[in-house]
Design a protein around this nucleic acid. Structure first.
Lengths: 152, 152
DNA sequence: GTTGAAACTATAAGCCT
DNA sequence: AGGCTTATAGTTTCAAC
């Protein structure tokens, strides 16, 4: 399960052009089409490549608002944490959930149409999350940039 | 540039399976292959679909550590902001940069191998960013979940 | 928006070096 | 492991409805 420089080159390309044809990819990494295809298959089956997705434009879908929500729980017992994580994972507007070190227990990344829509998400979903002691929402005024490409 | 329910169905599928064949996609959304293909082309050319990418497993690539970095600048003048944004966009370890309302000016999402690697990123890149007055880093202990699929 | 057909391209599997 | 060949499968463009 070790990655050589050719594997990394393949991954660097696929992180940016997920629908590149195998022929074009093989040319970019100086490999025959069949050898390249075998490597991509291996990277997929080993789970290095998780999946291929389309990235959509949040603004064109009227979801330009990103909000980071810091949450402190009433306690750090496993039951409370599990219950919270299960509940939060069911909210489609929450794109990320991280368990944090330090002050807050969790940070959520939420997308919304606007502040009103975030108020709805808050009322309908966030305010009903179990075990929450405190919640602080920070609005992004503008997303400067965003990438899914890991620095490899 | 208006999206009907079929467009949304196409987008919902492609957000999760970016390499699904047009034949399979057309079946899922109850459309003929050619009509489906035309719609996907339109969604791409209109920029609703930004691009197709491979999502990699950060853990398998030894990048399991996510750090949120809150940054306050020395001033909010356009020059300072532009200089900061230009510089931060050149750091490959920074996956996201958001201009924030409220206390901090910017929030960065950074990935690293471990705390030592983050120390290197901090020393090599973050500490050298122009116009920074204050910086506070918050480590994620665990990413509970993460998706790129917008709630449409 | 649908169907069907044609030319092209990509993918999978087997075999050789 | 890479590379080559063949068979299968998928894509793209066209026409006509």
């Amino acid at each position: 399960m070790t990655l050589d420089e050719t594997d990394l080159r393949i991954l660097r390309v696929l992180q940016r052009k997920g629908r590149i044809s195998n022929a074009d990819l093989s040319e970019k990494v100086n490999l025959s089409a069949s050898a390249c295809h075998r490597r991509v298959q291996r990277l997929e089956s080993e789970g290095i490549i998780r999946n291929f997705v389309a990235l959509l434009d949040p603004r064109k879908l009227s979801l330009p608002t990103t909000v980071f929500v810091e949450i402190t729980l009433q306690s750090q017992s496993d039951d409370i944490l599990d219950g919270f994580e299960k509940a939060v994972s069911r909210i489609p507007d929450v794109l990320e959930c991280h368990l944090m070190a330090g002050s807050a227990d969790y940070v959520l990344k939420v997308v919304a149409e606007d502040t009103d829509d975030f108020a709805r998400i808050h009322r309908q979903h966030l305010a009903r999350l179990p075990g929450v002691a405190q919640m602080q929402s920070s609005f992004a005024l503008r997303t400067v940039f965003k990438t899914t490409a890991l620095p490899i």
